[in-house]
Computed example of a mutant assay.
Amino acid sequence: MSRSPTHLPALAMLALAATPAAAGDTRFALMLQNDVVAGNDGGGYSNGIALSAMRSVAPGEDAIPAQWLLAPVAPWLGLGPATLTVSSLNQTMVTPSDLARKIPDPADTPYIGTLWFRAAQVSVRGAIADLLALNLGMVGPASGAKRSQILIHSLTHSERPQGWDSQLPNRALIAVDRYRALRLASGGAGDDRAAADLIVLGGVSVGNLQSSLGGSLLLRYGSGLQRSYPTALRAVSRSADPIMLGRGWFVYGAVHADRVFWNLDVGDAARLRESQVTAVAGLAYGWDDSSLSFSLQSTSPLTTLASRRKSYGSLSYATLWR
């Protein structure tokens, strides 16, 4: 995921400023993802960036006001009082393996750039957590992905991509995610000593870019696991990493699987796979006012004609707003 270097910061501040003041702790987070970390460039998901404002319950609180954009519909979709809300701007880019071609091989992964605003809410009731998210944005040149990747590649002295003019024309992007998770823990409630838990998660995503049914298994070991449980649902999509809320740490491994029922047409020869499997290994560390997360991710090929898995790294930093 990646953002336009010119208009993205202004859009980010505009969107985040629209979030009304409320109870709870507010954190701002920046996530950077890039495939160069895993030793490759192109051939699928390439890189990205996400800027988020997160509000979570403060010590002694049971709930916070609902996410402003989701408040009218959250109760109708089975969500209880909010435990975590997120407003974020995200940009993603997908590229073929041969960046030197101005007209990409039709059998290769296509150029796809997206830019969207994501409103998400997590409600936790004991061991059960529910996620509702709405994504609104653009696919195509308006995403700014071309300029972003050219800038990133110039900074990293990587090969300049030549085929961005072949990407799909501008289209509106809209999607709704609804997931539920169950936490199985080995430690007691509120236990900050080292312990382990297993999070089982499943749900659906419906939108004009892709509609899918997915499930995840997330195994964590560390401290403060219950306190940071709401952030684990951020791993539903590539747009976020699990983070630590407050002081503590954990290491984790996860497997995500999706069955795709519909997706955006990407060309005559290349077709997106109907099944996607992603493996993740990462760690998160939290201080009183900030946290840092890092993960390595490996996903199955994006298209039916590709055979090589795609790997990339993800780094997230979050800081508490006082």
Rank of each mutant, 00 (worst) to 15 (best):
K102Y: 13
W76I: 03
L136Q: 14
A58K: 13
A194P: 12
L89F: 12
F117D: 04
H157W: 11
L84C: 00
S212Y: 12
W116E: 03
I128E: 12
G203Y: 06
R247W: 08
W321S: 15
R160K: 11
N208E: 10
N263H: 13
P65M: 05
T92R: 01
V57N: 04
L213H: 14
L283N: 04
D197N: 14
P81H: 01
V260D: 12
S307P: 08
L51C: 05
L151R: 05
L168G: 07
W287V: 05
S52P: 09
D62V: 05
D191M: 08
T303W: 10
A58C: 04
R178M: 07
K310P: 08
D197G: 06
L245Y: 05
L173E: 03
Y179A: 09
G267Y: 12
G203D: 11
R247Q: 15
Q162E: 15
G48T: 00
N47T: 03
A15I: 12
A18D: 15
W76Y: 13
V73A: 07
D130P: 01
R3C: 07
G313A: 06
Q149L: 13
P65N: 03
P9D: 03
P104Q: 01
D191W: 10
V73E: 06
S154Y: 11
A175Q: 06
G44S: 05
L69V: 14
A269K: 06
T303R: 10
P242R: 03
S212M: 13
P110V: 00
A74Q: 07
G214M: 08
S123L: 09
D265G: 10
S291E: 09
R3D: 08
A269E: 14
L32F: 09
T319S: 09
S123N: 10
S216W: 09
R259Q: 13
G286R: 11
M54E: 14
V94L: 05
A257D: 11
R193D: 12
D289V: 12
